[in-house]
Design a protein around this nucleic acid. Structure first.
Lengths: 245, 245
DNA sequence: CGACGACTTGATGAGTGTCAATTTTCGTGG
DNA sequence: CCACGAAAATTGACACTCATCAAGTCGTCG
C-alpha cells in the first residue's frame, strides 16, 4: 500500500499503525479514466485516499478553460482538511483507471484514536501539499513556459520519489500534454514544443509516457527549485510528536 | 482586535476565549513598510498574527521576478501549519507600517488547552486560506488580465468583509499597482490599463487607494466566482465541534 | 524647489495562443 | 493478431495578449 510505503520513509511505523492504515484500503472502489471521483460544489466531508492510478484536482471555467490544481498520485490523501471545509471548490477526476477509498470522518477519527501521532504526521503531509501549491503558484505566475514545465516535471518526480515510485531518475507520467498544459497554464501546442526543447537541451528524455531525468541539476536550476526546502527530514516539532508514541 | 472580530462573526465566543485571544496581542511588535517580518529559508516554528496594517507573503526569483502568494490583512494568522512545516518557502513583508505578534508553538498550544474548540475554528480558517489559494491559482493559470484583477479585488474585498473592514462596498487597498501586478502575474503597466478599463465599465471606482465596488454582480461574473462556496456558514463538522464547548 | 516614487500613456515587440493539417499512437472490435 | 477509427502529438503559419521600453504627469517629502 503506497501510503504505508510513503509514511515508512520518514518514521518507523508500529505494527498497529501499519494495520490501521492497511485497514483503510479494505473497501476499495474502482473508477475508469475521466470519471469524476468527486464533483465540485458538493458538500464536503469525505477524503479520497488513492491506492493506484493517477487523478487530478481541477476546476473548469464556464467557457471550458480548465486549470489543474495538482496531480494526485498513489498514496496521496486528497485534502484532509475538507472535513472542516464547507463546500468543494474543485473536482477530482481519474485520468486513468484508479483504485481508491472514500474515507468518512469517522474512519479518520478512529485512525487518530488508534495512533494520535499519525495526526501530526498527516498534518505534516498536508503542509507539504500547501508547500507544493505555493511553488506551483509562483511557477504559473512568474515563470515562462520552459521553467514552468521544468518545475512541473521536478515536482512530479519528487512526489513519486516520496512514494517509492520513481527509481533511478525514471518515472511514468500518464498525463497527456493537454493535461500538462492545463496544469501549467499553457496551450497543449506550446507544451509539445517546449518539452521537445527540454529534450534537445539534454535535460530530460521521453519515450511514450516514460520520463527520464538526464540532468537533474539542470532541471533544478531551470525551475529555480530550492531543494533544501523539500528534504524528507521531519521537522523537530513533528519528530517530537512522533517520539512520544 | 481584528481576530476576535473575525471569529465573533461565526460563533459566540465565551469570555474566557475572548480573553485568551486578546492575550495574544499583549506584546505587539512594530515594523515599517517594506520590512521583512520573516525571511524565506529560515527554520519554521513561529506564526505571525497581524493586528494592524497589511503584509504580503511572497517569493522573489533570482532575476528579480516576484510572485506575491497572497496579502495578509489585519486579523489574519499567517499559516498555522508552519509549526509542522520544516523550512520557510516564502518571505513575509510589511507593505505599510504594521503591528503584529510572533506566536511561539507554546502559546498556540496554551490557547488550545484553554479552548479546544478554537482548534477546530483555526483549522477551518486555514482551510479557507487553501480555498483562496486554489482560486488564485486558477485565476493566474487560466484567466486573462481583466478577470485576474476582478478576482483579486473580489478576494480582498471578501477577506476584508470577514474581518469587518469593508463597510458599504468600499475598502482601502494599500497595495501599489506594482504589487497587484506581482500578485496577478501581470506587468504594472498592464495593471494600470486594466484597472482603468474596469472603471470605465462601471464595475469599480477608485480614488487614491480607496476602492468601491459599483457592480458587485458584474465583478463576480467577470471573476467567475461561485459565491456559494464562500458563505460564512460554518460547516456541520465544525459547528458540531464548536457546540460541545 | 528638486528628487523620487507611483501612476499613466503610447509605441513596439516577444512569448504564447489559436487554427489547421499531418503523423503517430492507442483502443476497440472483428 | 490485425484493422480501423479516435485520440494524442507534432509542425507550420498567423494573430493576439501582454511585456518592455520610454516619456511624461502628478503628488509627496525632504
Amino acid at each position: 500500500m503506497p501510503l504505508v510505503r510513503k509514511l515508512g520513509q520518514f518514521a518507523e511505523l508500529t505494527g498497529v499503525e501499519r494495520d490501521a492504515l492497511q485497514g483503510l484500503g479494505s473497501h476499495p472502489r474502482h473508477a475508469r479514466a475521466h470519471q469524476e471521483l468527486r464533483a465540485r460544489g458538493g458538500a464536503a466531508g469525505t477524503v479520497i485516499l488513492l491506492h493506484d492510478g493517477w487523478a487530478i484536482r481541477h476546476r473548469t471555467l464556464r467557457d471550458g478553460r480548465r486549470q489543474i490544481i495538482d496531480f494526485v498520485v498513489p498514496g496521496d490523501l486528497c485534502d484532509p482538511s475538507s472535513f472542516v471545509g464547507g463546500q468543494r471548490d474543485f473536482t477530482v477526476s481519474a485520468i486513468m483507471p484508479v483504485v481508491y477509498t472514500l474515507l468518512q470522518p469517522r474512519e479518520f477519527l478512529d485512525l487518530l484514536s488508534v495512533s494520535p501521532r499519525l495526526g501530526a504526521f498527516l498534518w505534516w503531509l498536508e503542509s507539504r501539499e500547501a508547500f507544493f501549491l505555493r511553488a506551483h503558484l509562483v511557477a504559473i505566475g512568474r515563470m515562462r513556459a520552459e521553467e514552468r514545465l521544468a518545475y512541473l516535471i521536478w515536482e512530479l518526480w519528487t512526489r513519486l520519489r516520496f512514494n517509492g515510485m520513481a527509481l533511478d531518475h525514471t518515472f511514468i507520467l500518464p498525463a497527456t500534454q493537454d493535461m500538462l498544459a492545463d496544469a501549467t497554464g499553457l496551450s497543449h501546442v506550446h507544451v509539445s514544443r517546449t518539452l521537445k526543447r527540454l529534450e534537445h537541451r539534454g535535460v530530460i528524455q521521453r519515450t511514450e509516457h516514460l520520463y527520464r531525468i538526464i540532468d537533474a541539476d539542470g532541471l533544478v536550476a531551470i525551475a529555480q527549485v530550492d531543494e533544501s526546502l523539500y528534504s524528507n527530514e521531519l521537522p523537530p516539532f513533528v519528530r517530537a510528536l512522533l517520539g512520544r508514541q
